[in-house]
Each structure stands twice: as structure tokens, then as C-alpha cells.
Design a protein around this nucleic acid. Structure first.
Length: 483
RNA sequence: GGGCCGUUAGCUCAGUAGGUAGAGCAUCUGCCUUUUAAGCAGGGGGUCACUGGUUCGAAUCCAGUACGGCUCACCA
């Protein structure tokens, strides 16, 4: 505990006063009869029946009038006014409640009525403190604006901001809808390791940790893809997992070091099937079909637009970029003002060109399809086109929301791709894949043709709750510790 | 990691060409039995993020540090 300020001292003294009066200020429970939500939704009924109700909530504001006091109490998103009269609750109780503070959790019973101005109010017959607050809440009108405190002390943000609370409730609702969607399509939810001896399934740097007993290095997963596909080999034909992934990289508006993805894999399907599945999934998330994101109207309508990787890039730069060498790509980058710092290999440069010249400008829900094989070591070669794979990325408002392939199930090809990645690593790509012999071995037992998808949950929530920062859809985003 | 900006009472914010701080809400005291950003009267509350420097004197000018925001880089 920090040093105590005057307000906290007064609240602490109020606690002491109540205890001296024999009041238990931290109760073990409260036998409420209604939630505030229920009370408000069915108020006409309860008014008519004149029943005594018992409810609980936090005192969020107070208006004192001598022998009468009004409180607003809040529970979840609902609030209701309480009317406490000295001659009803009695002199002793009325003396006690002087020592209740805004922020305290209370339980009350009484009958509903409406005030002169028509506000639904409980005429309180009895009132009890359930939990004493010892620190003052942020001010009622302006709330909490300091973003740092909102992230560090999310509970204060949730107490003071309905808007923020709604975002997180919506997040849970969206996850439930995705889970329902997958379950109803025959997918089975599984759990795979977060601590992995070999990390893989994405281009990223890992967090490294150590297991004492086995004295071994372990990596926090950057993706769960390779484990889910082992399960496909094992005959779990449709699997999915909501996975926290960890990537040891920078933080910005769309990146948090730990984030959530749902990956799902379907046997006997290809990436065309998965496009349709993703379309259907998003239409269940957005049944109204249109949303506004940061002032732009986004329309979800089947089929989502298909944008071919090479075709669109070729058209934009005015020449065929496939097969160009690194130097030629660099000159194109210069012409289009694309910064290639840190990009060394053909694939990475091409990817950068695409994301700067094409992807950034995509607004409406679109599938970017048929990526270069160089940047897609887990996707199978396109059945017709050379040098590309059967892959799509789901992009909305320039944000990559999802990624999918016809999964590479040829173990020999997969082994070659891993070897290519090792070469890239030698060329200086620190994110290139590590060889996963155990995974190749799994493929050697035979994996059915499979379509797989990963959807970024945080970004999906951003999109569907109109939040510009990933920190506003993660309850406890990573911040530096205060020193 | 780079650039720009920010940090003043519990909260939201002012702050004069550098003269050791103010408002609203909250809080405390008094009055008030249908108020609702209740009202009226009075009071308390601050190492102005931190550390140095310049100066007779620093919230204010300068430097550094911490944390945060935006942005660039890296990435999903």
C-alpha cells in the first residue's frame, strides 16, 4: 500500500466506526431476489405486484437531504436509485449509513416506486453494507480518462466505463458465437501445448523459457498449427483450439505480445472450402451484414472479394514481379517508396511490397489468395499455378484477420520446405522456420487433404467493436512495470 | 529501438514574460424528508512524475531518467 491520502484516511475511519458499532463490513454473501437487470426489465410487473425486492450493487452516487438520502447503486451495466428515509430504516441504521462511502457494495430490500420525475426507485426498508471500499472511485461525470490507469487498473475502467465493459462482454459473446459455429459444424475443441521444444507454424521470434527438472529449453508457442495437424493425422477430422500465442516482437495498435487465435482444421477440405467456412462464420458474427469501423462502412456479403497476390501486385507496379531477383524487387520498392529495412530475402521483400502497395488499401472484407511459395512453407502448391500456394489471407481495413491454406500433406515436399527455411535463416531471416522432424514424421503416416484456418480473435473483436487499439480489446495488455 | 507529444489534488482539467499553485466533481462540518452532474454556507487536501542544472527564486527554462500516447521500424 502506498501512503494514504486524506480521502483514504476518512474511508478507513468510516470502516473503523462501523466496526465499533458491531457491523461486519465484509459479508459472506447476499441473498438477493433480483438482479438490477431483471428489476428494470420487468419493473411494471413488480410495481403492480408491490413485492419486496432484495438487490445488491455498488454505491456510485449520493444525494443527501438531511433525514433522507438518495443513492444510485450499480450492478453490471444497470443502475437503480435508492430512496432511504430515516423514519423507515430507523434512527440507528440511519446513523450507520453516514459511514458508508461511494464505492461501497451494499444490499438493500424494499418496494419499487416511481418518483415525481418518473424514475424507478427502491424505497429502502433495510440496508446492509456487504463490502467496504477504502479508496475513492474516479469522479462520476468525467470518469477515468488516463489510458495508462485504464490499462493497468482495468477494474477501475470497468467500474467507470460502460463502453469499455460492453467491449469485453462483446468479446466473450463473439468467442462463444465462433465456438458455437465450429461445434455445430462438427469441429472438436482440443488443447495443445503452450510450452514447446520446437516452435513453429508462423514467422515470429519466440519467448524462451526453461524447464528445471528436464533441464531443457522450451519455447512459448507462436502458433499451434503443427500440433493441430498432428491431430488430423490422428484421425480427429475436424479440430479447433482457441489459443493464446506469444510472439517476442514489438507492440503497436494491432500487436500485443500475447494474443488469441482460433485455428481450425478440416479433413478432406481445401482452401476454397475454408473460404466459404470463413464467410459463413463472419456472417454469423455480423448477421446485420454491415458495421462501421473507424468511420468506414464495412459490408459483409458473400462472396468476399478475391484478390490474387501476384495479379494485383503485377497490375499495381506495371510489370510481372514473379521470378524477379532481389535487386529488381528493391528497385520497385524504391519507386513505390516502400521501406525494406530488415527485409532480406525474395519472399520477405515481395511480402513487404504487397502489404504496402495492396493490402494497406484493402477496406472491404477480402481474401488475398495464392501467395508466393517462398513465404508459405506449410501450404501446398497451387494445383494449376506455378510458384504459388493455395493460401488465403482474410483482410479487412488493411488488417490481416485470418490466414488459411490447403495444408501441405506431402511429407517429402514439407521436408524440402523446411530445408529451404533453414537456408533463409542462414541468409539472415531470424524468423525463418526451424526444422520439425517430428512433424514431418507425422505426415509420413499420411495426413488426409486438409484445409486449415487461423483467425485473430483480438483483431476480429477490434473490428466488430470499432476499437482502434488492440489494447482496448485485451483486458490486461502488456505494459512496462513501473520502477 | 527512432521521432513527436504528455505526466499539476482521489478524478477531470486550468495555470500568468520564472516570484514556492487554482477550478469543478469527490471528501469533511452545518442546514435540508421526492433529489438526480440536488442546493446553500464553511473547511481540509499538492515533494506540480523523478533526478540534476541555470537562477536571488523553477510547476514554468535546460539536461537526464521513468512511465504512457501517437508514429516509424519489426510482426499477426
Amino acid at each position: 500500500m502506498d501512503e494514504i491520502n486524506v480521502l483514504e484516511k476518512q474511508m478507513y475511519e468510516n470502516l473503523k466506526k462501523l466496526q465499533e458499532m458491531g457491523v461486519e463490513v465484509y459479508k459472506y454473501g447476499y441473498d438477493f431476489t433480483h438482479t438490477l437487470k431483471d428489476l428494470i426489465e420487468h419493473s411494471e410487473d413488480y410495481l403492480e405486484k408491490d413485492v419486496v425486492v432484495k438487490v445488491a450493487g455498488r454505491i456510485i452516487s449520493e444525494r443527501k437531504h438531511g433525514k433522507v438520502v438518495f443513492w444510485d447503486i450499480k450492478d453490471q451495466l444497470e443502475k437503480i436509485q435508492l430512496y432511504i428515509k430515516k423514519d423507515i430504516v430507523g434512527e440507528e441504521k440511519y446513523d450507520q449509513i453516514k459511514y458508508y462511502d461511494i464505492g461501497d457494495i451494499v444490499g438493500v430490500s424494499g418496494k419499487l416506486f416511481k418518483t415525481h420525475t418518473g424514475e424507478l426507485t427502491i424505497l429502502v426498508e433495510s440496508v446492509d453494507i456487504l463490502a467496504k471500499a477504502l479508496k475513492p472511485l474516479p469522479e462520476k461525470f468525467h470518469g477515468l480518462k488516463d489510458v495508462e490507469i485504464r490499462y493497468r487498473k482495468r477494474y477501475l475502467d470497468l467500474i467507470t466505463s460502460d463502453e469499455s465493459k460492453r467491449v469485453f462482454l462483446k468479446r466473450t459473446e463473439l468467442i462463444n458465437r465462433i465456438r458455437d459455429f465450429l461445434n455445430s459444424n462438427g469441429f472438436v475443441e482440443v488443447e495443445t501445448p503452450i510450452l514447446q521444444p520446437v516452435y513453429g507454424g508462423a514467422f515470429a521470434q519466440p519467448f524462451i523459457t526453461h524447464h528445471n527438472t528436464h533441464d531443457m529449453t522450451l519455447y512459448l508457442r507462436i502458433a499451434n498449427e503443427l500440433y493441430l495437424k498432428r491431430l488430423i493425422v490422428g484421425g480427429m477430422n475436424r479440430v479447433y483450439e482457441f489459443a493464446k500465442d506469444f510472439r517476442n516482437e514489438g507492440i503497436d495498435r494491432t500487436h500485443n505480445p500475447e494474443f488469441t487465435q482460433v485455428e481450425f482444421y478440416q479433413s478432406y477440405a481445401d482452401y476454397y472450402d475454408m473460404m466459404e467456412l470463413v464467410e459463413n462464420m463472419f456472417l454469423t458474427l455480423v448477421p446485420e451484414k454491415r458495421i462501421t469501423y473507424q468511420g468506414r462502412e464495412i459490408i459483409f456479403e458473400k462472396p468476399f472479394k478475391r484478390i490474387d497476390f501476384y495479379d494485383s501486385l503485377n497490375e499495381a507496379v506495371g510489370r510481372n514481379v514473379k521470378g524477379l531477383n532481389v535487386e529488381e524487387l528493391k528497385s520497385i520498392a524504391e519507386k513505390f517508396n516502400v521501406d525494406l529495412e530488415g527485409k532480406k530475402t525474395y519472399g520477405k521483400i515481395l511480402d513487404e511490397l504487397f502489404s504496402e502497395i495492396i493490402q494497406k488499401k484493402i477496406v472491404q472484407p477480402s481474401f488475398v489468395v495464392n501467395h508466393p511459395i517462398e513465404i508459405s512453407p506449410l501450404a501446398r502448391k497451387h494445383r494449376e499455378k506455378d510458384g504459388v500456394v493455395e493460401r488465403f489471407e482474410f483482410v479487412v481495413c488493411g488488417m490481416e484477420i485470418g490466414n488459411s491454406f490447403s495444408e501441405l500433406n506431402d511429407p517429402l515436399d514439407q521436408k524440402e520446405r523446411f530445408l529451404k527455411q533453414l537456408e533463409e535463416r542462414k541468409k539472415g531471416d531470424i524468423e525463418a522456420f526451424a526444422m520439425d522432424e517430428d512433424y514431418v514424421e507425422a505426415l509420413m503416416y499420411g495426413m488426409p487433404p486438409t484445409g486449415g484456418v487461423g483467425i485473430g480473435i483480438d483483431r476480429t473483436v477490434m473490428l466488430l467493436t470499432d476499437q482502434s487499439s488492440i489494447r482496448d480489446v485485451i483486458l490486461f495488455p502488456l505494459l512496462k512495470t513501473e520502477k
